[in-house]
């Protein structure tokens, strides 16, 4: 019951971030929305780990957090102009 409610709230969170991703107006807004979606997806993967009782999803979440962080920082440095 609680887990279902959490899934619904997380779905709404992804929805609002996607709206910001589509709306813009600058590329930094889109990057910020991407960063937030990365974090929400990490939390979602951890939630899936507990609701399916599979430990492996925790490792997936960890790797996803690392790669998402690296990607966001690299794109931000690129937009700044000094990679």
């Amino acid at each position: 019951m609680i887990l279902t409610l959490s899934f619904v709230l997380i779905g709404l969170a992804v929805f609002f971030s996607l709206l910001r991703l589509l709306k813009g107006p600058t590329s930094f807004d889109r990057l910020l929305a991407t960063d937030t979606i990365t974090l929400i997806t990490t939390a979602l993967l951890a939630l899936m780990a507990v609701s399916f009782s599979r430990v492996i999803y925790m490792d997936v979440a960890l790797v996803y957090a690392v790669i998402g962080f690296a990607g966001v920082v690299v794109i931000a440095r690129y937009l700044e102009g000094g990679l």
């Binding site: 960063d35 951890a46 507990v50 925790m58 960890l62 690392v66 931000a76 700044e80």
Partner: peptide
């Protein structure tokens, strides 16, 4: 999952402020 979740929490606390600071700096410089 407790140990792995603590690793994940430490990682998020360390990296999330860094990425948002980087975005703030990039947008301010642009």
């Amino acid at each position: 999952f407790l140990v792995k979740s603590i690793v994940l929490i430490i990682f998020i606390v360390l990296t999330n402020p860094v990425s948002s600071s980087t975005i703030a700096r990039a947008s301010h410089k642009s």
